[in-house]
Design a protein around this nucleic acid. Structure first.
Lengths: 115, 115
DNA sequence: TTATTATATGAACAAGTATTCATATATTGA
DNA sequence: TCAATATATGAATACTTGTTCATATAATAA
């Protein structure tokens, strides 16, 4: 017997194994969080809370090289966190939907810090 | 003039720069998401939704080597996602608080998949 | 068309991270 | 105390990822 809580833990383990999301689903969730787990990308999201911006202004708001910001925007877009819209010479980025803000706020609540 | 939406974007950029969280705060949020951005760690969290479990049963629920699971548990604990409680020979892990489940559910909603 | 501006992208390198293996610590039972 | 079991941890390796540099694409202005 591996532990004193044989019954409850084993039951939980059984339920957990049965209800474990598929590998593909787990990876999709992981990819989503990975997209928002890097400081430079997070800064971009924090910035976009204040409204749509083109790359030039994002660079201005978050600092760093244009190339780096562009790469990060590509990843954020691939992860479905931001959407892009061409506007003449510029490309305007904005948050994909309200979930993005919600998850950021939830994280800040968890950390007990105000956004 | 870098873009046709000079006024709005510049205003947004200004507000964004002014309200940008400190580097330390951004890194704390990033660290939190990083903790839950790896499939193996996510599986552990998904498993623990079904109740407290000792390491043995977590290994049973998520698969993989005991050593690997133990390392992941250490990271999850350091990130404040799970808490540990010694119980005799075993150590029982459980989710740190309700925010953990909330953020997982929010992610699944965003991805339009049921948990 | 050519020059200029805005943005994207490929390749290379550096930094970070997950896993494995071997071993250490801690608790319990004999 | 000694053996057995549960869990943790250090080191090494392999893999992933962020940034930079140079360059490419796309739109506009001249």
């Amino acid at each position: 017997m591996h532990c004193g809580h044989e019954r409850e833990h084993e039951l939980a383990a059984k339920r957990a194994a049965e209800n474990m999301p598929s590998g593909e689903q787990v990876e999709r969730v992981a990819a989503l969080f990975k997209a928002i787990s890097e400081p430079s990308r997070l800064k971009i999201l924090f910035a976009l809370r204040h409204g749509e911006m083109c790359v030039f202004h994002i660079v201005e708001a978050v600092g760093g090289a244009q190339s780096a910001v562009s790469h990060q925007l590509r990843l954020l877009k691939a992860a479905g966190m931001v959407k892009a819209r061409r506007d003449g010479q510029n490309i305007a980025y904005s948050l994909a939907d309200e979930h993005v803000v919600a998850v950021l706020e939830l994280a800040c609540t968890h950390l007990d810090c105000k956004l």
